[in-house]
Design a protein around this nucleic acid. Structure first.
Lengths: 351, 351
DNA sequence: TTGAAAGCGCTAACAT
DNA sequence: ATGTTAGCGCTTTCAA
């Protein structure tokens, strides 16, 4: 079959015997400016030609295009895969937006280059999942017209950037996780995390310690951390969990409960503990954070903290689009409450 | 800081005291058409203004834009997350292309709507991971100018569509998986799969049966299948695995080795078997297909078949871009050899 | 109620 | 070696 050229607004106008201006009006909902008959003729011409407006042309004129950037450390990480799915659903639902995906592997250079490309493509809204501490490059991007919504990190007080923040209440997540173990009778707890500090990790630790404090067991509490020694890879977090398990097997320090900074690390931790002959939950209870659906597939299944991802994705999309329409919108921070999902990996303390 | 308007080719031309045509020439590598001094002036003007060409304008003129569509059933599924990462890397590496992501949840309507949007955005190349059997809508999309490369399904002989196919050799994958179990001494084997047939699933089963045939154990071989009773969801495949495990526990039929159609199903299968008191690998050996990095995190870790994903992603990107440049390119089918990665889930038959 | 026309930023054919 | 210009498909102002 011959490759027909896509039909243009011209073709529609001719077929409906009107000017392109009138077709454009119809396209943009200004139907009050024409007779019903004209409108009908245009509609049927559009249908007959399977006409779809050329976004590039429209964008050249209006400066807008229904595209959103989504920047994640790595889409191969199930946490971000799940998030990406929710973002895509929300973007489609809200305004028929499509999603331009980028992976950063935690490289500031890749983030910057993605921003440049977005701008170059006329995309001005972006949802950013970044664990980078240094955020100076964001200022540059914003100055160039980018609207950024940041996922899973609180606003840093005094930060001058016009960025909305949508995040789980990570303090609360750490707190609920620790409290769950405390309620089960555990008193010697640890928090397992990569050593590099990020806002969200610090928050989780704060919550963890707050719960311990309240239960007066802060003194028997510790933070287990290991550096990531490889370039950002799929299994990095799990490897850290595994490394921590080995250390624990060598010197357990009486620990009976561990909160992991996220599920992937918890999975690695559980694998490592098992390899060392430590049983979960009989010897050590483990709680993750994220509640990936993978939690239900491991044995023991992993107790974890769930955030309302779909709602958060909708909020992010909504904020990006709102701020695009009205740049003077006050900056907002939106924290969402996590809930504990109890499974097999956590059990009562065995005196 | 005031939001400066992005600079245009005009601005560059003025700053370098040349015409926009010359700037355009410089931009498009036609540097032989100007003096070195002029070129240098333009370069420095571009740098000074941080000029980046407006893609929409360029596209309106040329009909091209460095964007690729990537359509997957669900990006939350780690198989597709991993693929998406490789595709993004390849697209960036080859020509600085960016990736527009879409999820189909196996809905033909969503596929079609994604194609329409791509076209509307001027994107003409797309990498498609589809398990849909009916492919008539693809013909329509191709007629409209879309260049499609299909992932993980063989070309259907006699299919008239101009689609390149890049896939694991699934027959070989099924064969290697079965052979591995046979080599371990197993004689009563089953292949576990969702009941809905796709090209790739049928191929895997063919390979599985071919290996059994060769070992003269085809008669003690079966295909275990269960329907998916939920809408496409994250855990669908795992649930099917779990359901099959329950059936097996009720009536094991002497089985000692199972090949799962993919790793996610295998994970569910292993969880279900364990819940029913069947031990892997002592009672039953399990082999998956895909070799997700998650394989190493489960206990027992999962034996699986690995495909050269990065190479395949590069091939797909390369084919899309080649065919975009030369639509008369002969249609190709590219099959890649899987390799077995042996882990804990498969062990010698215990008479 | 409808249409003419300018112009968004760029490329490339065609001058000079 | 460099410049002039038409035009890609669309929106929108202004005129009729």
């Amino acid at each position: 079959m011959p490759l027909r050229k896509r039909s243009t607004i011209q073709d529609v106008a001719e077929r409906a015997s009107v000017s392109i201006a009138t077709v454009s009006n119809a396209l943009n909902g200004r139907t009050t400016k024409m007779s019903a008959a004209t409108h009908a003729r245009i509609e049927s011409a559009i249908a007959a030609l399977a006409y779809r407006p050329n976004r590039a042309a429209r964008q050249l004129k209006t400066g807008h295009t229904p595209l959103l950037g989504l920047l994640v450390p790595s889409i191969a990480n199930p946490s971000f895969g799940t998030l990406a799915r929710e973002v895509e659903i929300a973007a489609q639902a809200v305004e028929g937006y499509r999603v331009l995906l980028g992976n950063t592997y935690r490289s500031q250079e890749k983030e910057t280059s993605f921003f440049d490309d977005l701008l170059s493509h006329g995309v001005r809204g972006v949802i950013l999942c970044s664990s980078l501490v240094d955020q100076r490059h964001l200022g540059t991007a914003i100055d160039k017209g980018l609207v950024i919504v940041s996922y899973d990190r609180r606003a840093i007080p005094g930060q001058p950037l016009a960025i909305d923040h949508v995040s789980t209440d990570n303090v609360r997540a750490g707190e609920l996780a620790a409290q769950h173990l405390i309620d089960l009778g555990h008193t010697r707890l640890a928090f397992a995390t990569p050593s590099r500090r990020t806002v969200s990790r610090a928050d989780k630790i704060d919550g963890f310690r707050a719960a311990a404090q309240r239960a007066r067991i802060l003194h028997s509490t510790s933070v287990l951390e290991a550096p990531s020694n490889e370039a950002y890879g799929d299994s990095e977090l799990a490897e850290i969990g595994r490394a921590l398990a080995l250390r624990l097997a060598a010197d357990r320090q009486g620990l009976t409960g561990i909160v992991a900074v996220n599920d992937m690390l918890a999975f690695g931790l559980m694998a490592g503990l098992r390899d060392c002959g430590l049983r979960v939950p009989e010897d050590i209870s483990v709680v993750g954070i994220d509640d990936l659906y993978l939690c239900t597939l491991f044995r023991p299944s992993l107790t974890s903290l769930r955030a309302p991802l779909a709602v958060m994705a909708r909020k992010m999309v909504e904020r990006v689009i709102s701020r695009l329409a009205d740049p003077s919108l006050p900056v907002g921070e939106f924290l969402f409450e996590p809930t504990l999902v109890s499974r097999e990996s956590s059990a009562p303390y065995q005196g």
